[in-house]
Every structure is written in structure tokens, then in C-alpha cells.
């Protein structure tokens, strides 16, 4: 790729008179050695999977294997359909759709990682709702995914996108930033405005820890996807209005890396801190894996020869 940071990306777009999505598409084809058409088709397939996940989450049973979550999106959608929604037509749908996709993920359904599975609801939530509200074609939405991907590419390489490395800010935060920048461009914003949307969005999730209850991508991940979709719209709206990120977006990404690097292990997807370590969080963990902690101790003691014979838990429920 010819860009390594967001400033460089925007500068390249301005110099070549291209929107971010077009520049990304051409760079992608160059990187992969495949044609622009092939790469677009792959992304179109991905968008189809996203729309299908929204549909499934709103119509099928999404109770997770743990029984901890599922079917909340349908309730939120029912409230919207009753006319009682409070976020406006776009926000109402984005919230329901993001929850829907995230619940499909938690129930081991098919999704597209954007950038991760834990944050897979944000982009489809924003994209599918915006497509319906603004009457955009699938082709246009596919272009938007290239914009989101370009922004995410910079974030992932200059910071991180996994909760285990950088906490939830790296997952939901990155997804919100990507969705915000893409929506800003889809709505006619300049590359610079899209980049400001990224900085504005990321600032709102700095420090967010990854504390999955029972180690599952359910609580609080699913609702954070719902919140994330709404935040992305908020950031895009500010950027389109001309609000700028006073701290340049590349520096906000640096800050995310610094904060994530300083996070103790217990806040990085280990299910040992935050909500996972609350009284109820621990009780849920206990109910889910009654033998787990005992097993870990046993494994540590019996596996000194490295064979693992004493600790097979293949037969565990």
C-alpha cells in the first residue's frame, strides 16, 4: 500500500483526485495481483453476507449456546416498528441491525469480521440502515466497505484491532471509527472529513476494556455493537458538519496503542477483570465452566512432561 497513515491517505486522495474507496480498490488490486473487478466482487459477496446476517438476526432464533444472550435485536426492532423509536429513522435501524448481526455471531452464525467478529455488528448496522434510508445501491455500499477497510488498515497496522492486544477500544473502537469515516464519505464528505470522523470516533472509545463475561463474545460485546453503530453516525455527522479532531486522527490512533499497551492483562480478553470479574460475572463463569478453574490447576501440575495426558478435557461438556 502506498499509504501508512491517515494523513498520507488523505494527501494521496487529494493529489490523485480520488475518493478513499477508489484509491483503496486500486491499491488492493495492485497488492493482490487480482483485477479491480475480482476484488469488488469479493467485497460484494461480503456485503451480501452482512445483509443476510441482519435479516437472520431480526427473524431467526439467535439464542447463544450459553443461553446468556439472544433475540434482543428483535425487541429493539419491534419498538422501532411501533413508532416509539427515539434515535431518528437512521439511528433506530442502525441500533437494531447492529445488535442483530452481533447476536448471529454469538449464536455461531455466519458473519464477516469487521475488523473482528466481536465488533462485526457495527459496520453492517450502519451500512444496511443507511442504504435503506438513503436509497443507495449495493455497489455503492461495496465502495463504502473499501473506505472502511482503508481506514481500518491504518488503524490495525499502527495500533491493534484485537481485544487480547488492546482491549475493546481496539475492536469496537476501530469498527466505529471505520464505519464513521465510511459513512462520512458515502454522504459526500471529503477524504479529510472522513479522516476527522475516524479521530472523533476513536476518542470516544479510548480506554474501553475487553472484559467478556464468561469469556464469551456476548456480554457486553453485543450491546457495545449497538452503541457503536449509533456512535459512528454521531461521529460522521460531526465531521460532515465541519467538526475537526483537534488531535490529528493519526495521533489518536497512537494514543489508542499507548493506552492498550498499558492495559493490564485482565482487561484484555482474559475474562479476569471488569464485568467478567463482578459477582454476577463470576457466578455466570462458574455456571458455564464449573470444572474449568480446577482443571487449569490440575493441568499446570500434571503437564510438566509436556504430554498433556493428565489434562485431556475432551469429554467435558
Amino acid at each position: 500500500m502506498r499509504f501508512q497513515d491517515l494523513q498520507g491517505l488523505a494527501a494521496l486522495c487529494i493529489r490523485e483526485g480520488l475518493p478513499i474507496h477508489r484509491l483503496m480498490l486500486e491499491e488492493q488490486a495492485r497488492e493482490s495481483g487480482r483485477t479491480v473487478r475480482q476484488e469488488k466482487m469479493k467485497m460484494t459477496d461480503y456485503y451480501r453476507v452482512m445483509k443476510e446476517a441482519v435479516r437472520r438476526g431480526l427473524t431467526e432464533d439467535t439464542r447463544s449456546r450459553s443461553g446468556l444472550t439472544g433475540n434482543d435485536a428483535k425487541q429493539v426492532e419491534a419498538l422501532r416498528e411501533s413508532g416509539a423509536g427515539m434515535l431518528g429513522p437512521l439511528g433506530d435501524k442502525a441500533l437494531a441491525y447492529a445488535l442483530a448481526v452481533s447476536e448471529v455471531n454469538a449464536s455461531m452464525g455466519r458473519i464477516i469480521a469487521t475488523p473482528t467478529a466481536g465488533s462485526c455488528g457495527v459496520i453492517p448496522g450502519v451500512f444496511v440502515s443507511a442504504q435503506e434510508e438513503f436509497g443507495w445501491s449495493d455497489e455503492r455500499m461495496t465502495e463504502g466497505l473499501f473506505t472502511a477497510g482503508a481506514l481500518g488498515y491504518v488503524i490495525a497496522n499502527r495500533s491493534f484491532v484485537s481485544g487480547a492486544e488492546g482491549g475493546c477500544q481496539a475492536e469496537i473502537g476501530s469498527a466505529v471509527a471505520m464505519a464513521a469515516g465510511a459513512l462520512a464519505e458515502l454522504r459526500g464528505g471529503t477524504p479529510e472529513q472522513a479522516v476527522h470522523a475516524v479521530g472523533l470516533a476513536l476518542k470516544n472509545s479510548l480506554g474501553l476494556v475487553c472484559d467478556p463475561v464468561g469469556g464469551l463474545v456476548e456480554v457486553p460485546c453485543i450491546v457495545r455493537n449497538g452503541f457503536g453503530a449509533v456512535s459512528a453516525i454521531t461521529a460522521a455527522q460531526m465531521a460532515l458538519a465541519g467538526v475537526r479532531s483537534a488531535i490529528p486522527s493519526d495521533e489518536v490512533i497512537e494514543a489508542m496503542r499507548e493506552v492498550g499497551g498499558a492495559m493490564p492483562d485482565k482487561y484484555r480478553e482474559t475474562a479476569r477483570g471488569g464485568l467478567a470479574a463482578t459477582k454476577t460475572g463470576k457466578r455466570i463463569m462458574e455456571e458455564l465452566h464449573p470444572r474449568r478453574h480446577a482443571k487449569r490447576e490440575e493441568a499446570a501440575a500434571s503437564d510438566e512432561d509436556g504430554t498433556g495426558q493428565g489434562a485431556s478435557d475432551k469429554d467435558a461438556p
Binding site: 447463544s64 455461531m108 452464525g109 458473519i111 469480521a113 469487521t114 466481536g118 481500518g152
Partner: peptide
């Protein structure tokens, strides 16, 4: 970044 297509979670 966008992808892979996958079974969750």
C-alpha cells in the same frame, strides 16, 4: 480488515 467470512463468535 474486512473479512474473513466466518462462523462466530
Amino acid at each position: 480488515i474486512i473479512g474473513p467470512g466466518m462462523i462466530g463468535p
